[in-house]
């Protein structure tokens, strides 16, 4: 246990994963927009502190912006269960309940997205794979995870090369739908073919090195872990399990939900109906 005196700068990947899972489970169990927003905000602050905010912000925005817009249109205008009508335009009715539901769901999804993006942007994938293999997760899972994340840029380079090669042979991108489909086929077939060929070669290389053997493996990578982190993981998962059990058993102490009355009073001209 050499790491006890000098705690590592980055937490063990399992600690980060346990924290992310616990945060997501507790946020879902609490089901309060205020808690969800607080969790999302805390993730944003942690992202700034660990220096990944520049990558995380656009990734989160690309996911969340269309989702929020869709929620707002869907529930803001059409919420047949709503009773407190704020505005009425024929088929579309703005109700306080609908807006509250959109806020609840939007905030909860934001917390969920921020928590897991923070995890995936800060975790070192080789460390995660090594730790999982040590925990008897099938080594194939680690292979698929690490291989996919490293393969993606290589494949988009290959696709660009195929497109250039086909364009030099007279492929024209654009035109009518049929010509576009034909162009897509001219790119897809060589891409898929070369990927399957490459995979065959990798399979032979892996087999030659005993990848499918069922013995325990020795890892060159030593991922530090501390007693404090083990204790933290246990506490986080226990708290999450307790929150989930409390919610599922129906014994959850009701938190103040969306402030309907206050919202209605703020509405100019009072609430019709």
């Amino acid at each position: 246990m050499p790491a006890r005196l000098n705690p590592p700068a980055a937490p063990n990947p399992l600690t980060a994963l346990a924290a992310a899972v616990a945060a997501a489970a507790i946020t879902t169990a609490v089901s309060s927009w205020a808690v969800s927003l607080a969790v999302a905000l805390a993730c944003a602050m942690l992202a700034v502190r660990s220096g990944v905010a520049g990558r995380l912000a656009p990734a989160a925005a690309v996911i969340l912006a269309p989702f929020w817009l869709s929620l707002l249109v869907m529930h803001g205008l059409f919420f047949p269960e709503g009773r407190t009508v704020l505005a009425d335009w024929g088929a579309a009715r703005v109700t306080a309940e609908g807006l509250g539901f959109a806020l609840d769901m939007g905030a909860r999804t934001a917390a969920y997205v921020m928590v897991f993006l923070l995890f995936s942007f800060t975790v070192r994938v080789p460390d995660l794979v090594a730790v999982m293999a040590a925990r008897r997760v099938p080594p194939q899972f680690g292979y698929v995870l690490a291989s996919t994340l490293t393969l993606a840029p290589a494949i988009s380079r290959k696709l660009a090369r195929i497109r250039q090669a086909q364009e030099s042979r007279g492929l024209v991108l654009g035109g009518g739908p049929l010509r576009r489909l034909a162009a897509a086929r001219l790119q897809m077939v060589p891409l898929v073919l070369s990927l399957i060929e490459d995979a065959g070669e990798r399979a032979q290389a892996l087999d030659a090195r005993g990848f499918n053997g069922s013995r325990t493996r020795t890892s060159y990578r030593d991922v530090p872990d501390t007693a404090a982190q083990r204790a933290f993981r246990a506490v986080a998962l226990l708290l999450a399990a307790a929150a989930v059990a409390l919610r599922l058993s129906g014994q959850w102490p009701e938190l103040p939900g969306f402030p309907l009355q206050g919202f209605a009073m703020l509405w100019p001209g009072g609430v019709p109906g």
């Binding site: 194939q140 996919t148 995979a199």
Partner: peptide, 18 residues
């Protein structure tokens, strides 16, 4: 996952990127 032959397993990352 552990039941798949290696030739199939190496295709999975390819499929995910596809």
């Amino acid at each position: 996952l552990p039941t798949l032959p290696t030739s199939t397993l190496v295709l999975i990352p390819v499929a995910l990127v596809l």
